[in-house]
C-alpha cells in the first residue's frame, strides 16, 4: 500500500473523503520513501541517472513549494553570487537535502568557471 506524504494511505483518498472535505494537498503528494523505491526501480532498469534524479526528488519532496521554486530561480544563469549558492547549499544540507546541496555547490563552481554569477 502506498502512503502519501501526509502519511495517509492512498486508498483512503476517495471521492467520499473529498466530499467530506477530508483530503488535503499533502494527501496527494508523493512520499520520499516512494521516490526512493522508484529510484531503485530505475536503477534496476539501467538508468542510474533517473535513479539519481528520484533520490534528489525524495529530498525535495520534504521542502515546501516556495522553497523549491526559489532554489530553482537561484540556479538560473546570472541570478546568484557564489556566496548565495553556497548559502543555499548549506541550508539544503541542513535540511537533509544533501544530494541537492551537492548539486548546488557543483553549480556554484561551474558558474564561477563560466562567468554565470552575479
Amino acid at each position: 500500500m502506498t502512503q502519501a506524504r501526509s502519511g495517509r494511505q492512498v486508498d483512503e483518498v476517495t471521492l467520499d473523503a473529498v466530499r467530506r472535505g477530508e483530503v488535503a494537498a499533502d494527501d496527494v503528494r508523493i512520499h520520499p520513501h516512494t521516490l526512493l523505491h522508484q529510484a531503485q526501480v530505475a536503477q534496476d532498469h539501467a538508468n542510474p541517472q533517473l535513479a539519481a534524479n528520484f533520490r534528489r526528488a525524495a529530498e525535495l519532496a520534504l521542502l515546501d513549494d516556495a522553497q523549491v521554486m526559489a532554489t530553482y530561480e537561484a540556479l538560473r544563469p546570472g541570478r546568484s553570487a557564489y556566496a548565495d549558492l553556497v548559502a543555499i547549499a548549506d541550508d539544503l544540507q541542513h535540511r537533509g537535502a544533501v544530494l541537492n546541496a551537492a548539486l548546488v555547490r557543483e553549480a556554484a563552481d561551474a558558474y564561477r568557471a563560466r562567468g554565470l554569477l552575479t
Binding site: R56, A57, T71, Y72, L75, R76, N100, V104, Y111
Partner: peptide
C-alpha cells in the same frame, strides 16, 4: 543551465 534543469527535473519528480 544544466544544473538548473537538473534541479527542475527533480522538482517535478518530487
Amino acid at each position: 543551465t544544466p544544473w538548473s534543469k537538473a534541479f527542475l527535473t527533480s522538482a517535478y519528480a518530487s
